[in-house]
């Protein structure tokens, strides 16, 4: 018998009698929060910045204002030819992308309670680039903010996901004497534009 069967057999023999799965009653957690306000607060606590804008055009102009001297920029927003300094083909070779400065991506889901923004393979041209880029800029429609993680997962079909990630703020660490340092292995800054 191989290990797979041995392990499964042991687990089956050793497990307790069946215990029912508890139901999640969302009413317990509901507290009528102002979701946009709470989202902004939590992104800021996580070390990120939030701006409210009217459209994607404003996103890119504000991004250029915020990062005026960057050389390597990419976004997959529509009509963004003027913004991109590299093309999708270059992104496909991420091992040579260490100098990616600004990356602007669109998200379809944000969570108020923790300022997390959801991205999937559909939103990210190449999985590693939100981590390689120095500055990560995310665009999120206000109406797509949900209050808690429960509602976020209710909005996500478990069957369609290939890869997805909640990102809350820039990469960080406190591993040296508990001093918080922004910019560990991933992005050094994170900005969210609410449209």
């Amino acid at each position: 018998m191989d290990s797979r069967d041995t392990i499964l057999k042991k687990l089956k023999a050793n497990k307790p009698e069946f215990i029912a799965l508890p139901k999640i009653n969302l009413d317990i957690f509901d507290e009528n929060i102002d979701m946009v306000k709470e989202f902004i607060r939590k992104v800021e606590v996580a070390g990120g910045k939030v701006f409210e804008v009217t459209d994607n055009k404003e996103v890119l102009s504000k991004t250029q204002e915020a990062f005026p001297d960057t050389k390597v920029n990419f976004t997959n927003l529509d009509d963004s030819g003027f913004f991109n300094t590299i093309d999708y083909e270059t992104l496909k070779n991420p091992h040579k992308l260490n100098d990616l400065d600004v990356l602007v991506l669109e998200s379809t889901l944000g969570v108020a309670e923790n300022g997390a923004v959801w991205l999937t393979d559909n939103d990210i041209p190449v999985r590693v680039i939100p981590f390689i880029t120095k500055h990560l800029v995310l665009v999120l429609p206000k109406e797509n903010i949900v209050p808690y993680m429960h509602q976020a997962y209710n909005a996500l079909d478990p069957e369609v996901l290939d890869y997805g990630i909640f990102i809350s703020g820039p990469s960080k660490t406190a591993d040296i004497e508990q001093s918080l340092v922004i910019g560990a292995q991933g992005a050094m800054s994170m900005t969210v534009f609410l449209v």
């Binding site: 996580a46 993680m149 997962y153 209710n154 478990p158 809350s168 703020g169």
Partner: peptide, 29 residues
Amino acid sequence: QEHLGVFLRLLARSATGQPITTYSSHFRK
């Protein structure tokens, strides 16, 4: 997957006081 809603709310708050870790990566394929 919906149970992640419970555990991700519990995990980082208990660990460091953050409402969620910076990155919660969902690998599937």
